[in-house]
Design a protein around this nucleic acid. Structure first.
Lengths: 216, 216
DNA sequence: ACGCCGTACTATACACTGTACGTTAACTGC
DNA sequence: GCAGTTAACGTACAGTGTATAGTACGGCGT
């Protein structure tokens, strides 16, 4: 009897299902049991393919990094850098779970290496020495990570009416005597939280600083 | 009989205990039941002071932000910015739980506002218009957040021998044909992951870009 | 001085979680 | 046809956050 059919699972299938569940239910609601149920399988079946939950997280993260487009080759190197950083941000915005996956685990996996290869190649081709290229790569990557994670958090907060109301009231409870600048700039602060312009502003600051260091 | 003594608890006591537990046991092992046990109290007792776990997280985060030193007043504004950013990074390194607390929740609370007030005041005093000041504040904050979170993650990975070994082997499994630059720059990449110089490099890039935009 | 009431805490319970352990059924090679 | 490997199973455990209901104490108005 076909009670326990074999080879109904595979790493790819599990990763795809896990990814879809993260997207639909949210990263917090994600669970191994949820994935197993979706696949019509016991929770322990997943442990044939992944050693634990973090292992599955790593696989999903690498799968997502594989969706990043290649570096455009027909533009200047600053525009190449811009393209890579904007691409990563866009991917994180489209798939908010990626932010959490990147924040809690280090880089590992072939697709992640492919992304690093692209950015490092651009910097080396621009003439930067190995150390500067590596430093710049880390800086750009962590900036994109921090800025976009923040953007996603704030957007989520804005969608939750209860949390948003509480944030506003705490803001308004600040006395203008103790926090003159925060109170004065409140509209600007809430306007500059996220958005393309905010992201590009920080990115341009970094590129400006990089331009000064450009080798001849 | 003094079976159920009153007023043994307080928000401050709970926050302090929660903070200590996060520091000693690690943020992941932190739990409401752990805090309650440490206080010799039932788990539900905490709900008199906090509406849920996230509420307690917020309070601990704000408590930690209160440990940030004030902005030095006797130096140039770029050095003031540097001091604030380095101070935040240092606090995150000393208390790794702060990284997780900042990553998963937005800014709220008086101590957090105090920090924002300091940085925004510096930027306004330097002559930046409201919008640029707000944008710069967000950029600097998210950079520090991203860079330092990353640094902490990598340091943790390095301490776990099993995870570190796996990371090395995946690195070494990359063919030099497909990933020439990554393989070539492997030593630089592992050397430039974290550390004061790496952090200051990115910070200097941002300040350089800011210098160009300095109002007269 | 007395009774009331809100508040601070307890007890119980539920619906989950990740995963360790032992078992069973299906496929593979001899 | 039989042995061995492997994929999936079921059970169980030690946790989690928190909803709900109950209980005893402290301070209040009279």
């Amino acid at each position: 009897m076909g009670r326990t059919p074999r080879n109904t699972l595979s790493s790819e299938l599990i990763v795809r299902t896990a990814f879809e569940l993260m997207e639909s239910k949210g990263t917090d609601a994600f669970s191994l049991r949820g994935v197993a149920a979706e696949l019509g399988v016991g929770p322990m079946a997943l442990y044939t393919y992944f050693r634990n939950k973090d292992d599955l997280y790593d696989a999903v993260r690498d799968h997502l990094m594989g969706l990043l487009p290649a570096v455009p080759q027909d533009v200047s190197w600053p525009d190449q850098v811009r393209a890579v950083c904007r691409g990563l941000r866009l991917l994180m915005l489209q798939h908010p779970c990626l932010a959490q996956l990147l924040a809690s685990r280090p880089l590992a996996g072939h697709e992640t290496a492919r992304v690093a290869e692209g950015l490092l190649g651009v910097l080396r081709a621009a003439g930067f020495d190995p150390e500067t290229a590596a430093r710049t790569h880390t800086t750009l990557f962590t900036y994109v990570l921090g800025a976009t994670s923040w953007e996603i958090q704030m957007a989520a907060e804005r969608r939750d009416p209860e949390a948003w109301r509480r944030l506003r009231t705490t803001m308004e409870s600040l006395s203008a005597r103790d926090f003159p600048t925060v109170v004065e700039l409140a509209p600007e602060l809430s306007r500059t939280t996220g958005g393309d312009e905010q992201f590009d502003y920080g990115l341009d600051l970094l590129l400006e600083g990089l331009r000064v260091r450009t080798p001849s």
